[in-house]
Amino acid sequence: MKDHVLSKASQQFLENLRVYLFTSGKRESEIHDILQELTEHLTDAERGGKSTEEIVGQSPKAYMESLSSEMNRDYRTWGLKIIPMLLLGAISFLFIQDLLQGEFAYSMIQITGYLLFIISFLGGVLVAFNLLAKSKKSFVKEMIWLGTPVLLSMLILIGALILDQNVVSPMIELGIVGQILLSILMISFVISFSFWAKTFILPIILIAFHLPPILLAYTPLTSDIQSLLATVIAFGVIILYLMFTNDEDDKKSYAT
């Protein structure tokens, strides 16, 4: 039998469903199963001349919700894998930046600010993703939905940093031995975590943001151009990595 290529509408629906179930914290194996089953159903149906709407009904959003409500939440993956990864990523990001700049003392306000920033950022982005995946929204609306939590958490961080400059709070300082130990701990943590979570997005982001500025510092370019170039390179590398891994995933999930 000839391979049937799913219509754009069906592919779009499956992708939205995947994102929706994923951000709803459903178990990965269950998400895979239902997507596979629906891909097969849609393939059979399209071969028989039926439209996506005849399968998913008039409201894809309501249909996604009805599927989601019958699926188990996967607290384990979320609790053990994704949230720690996002947190670890954010922490190691800030940490390595300070390490490279040789600033290694933190005040209580700073530490609290960082923690609040991480929590509000992660929580907000997850909620926004979940709401967005349910229905197709315009680009402007998507940007507002995602931008709000990002902006709010940034304000919290900036607020904490301003407060830190004006109010004295106890300092926590690390000696050189402490710094080296923490650095080794952080790096081995990042590496082993990447193997365990089976994604290298974290080290890729860390390298993409931190390596170019160091290398560019050796060039005769002005500092403005250096920082501009560093940003462009960082985002370029991350986008390329995501595109590369996405392609791999697509090949796997649409092959029936």
Binding site: I34, E37, L38, E40, H41, D44, A45, K50, E53, E54, I55, V56, G57, Q58, Y63, S66, L67, S69, E70
Partner: peptide, 23 residues
């Protein structure tokens, strides 16, 4: 799944969308 949906609509349940069976 697809066979079930087809059978349901053969028996006259054509007003419900096929995907309903999966939940």
């Amino acid at each position: 799944g697809y066979e079930m949906a087809t059978r349901l609509s053969h028996f006259g349940f054509s007003s419900i969308s096929e995907g309903t069976i999966y939940p």
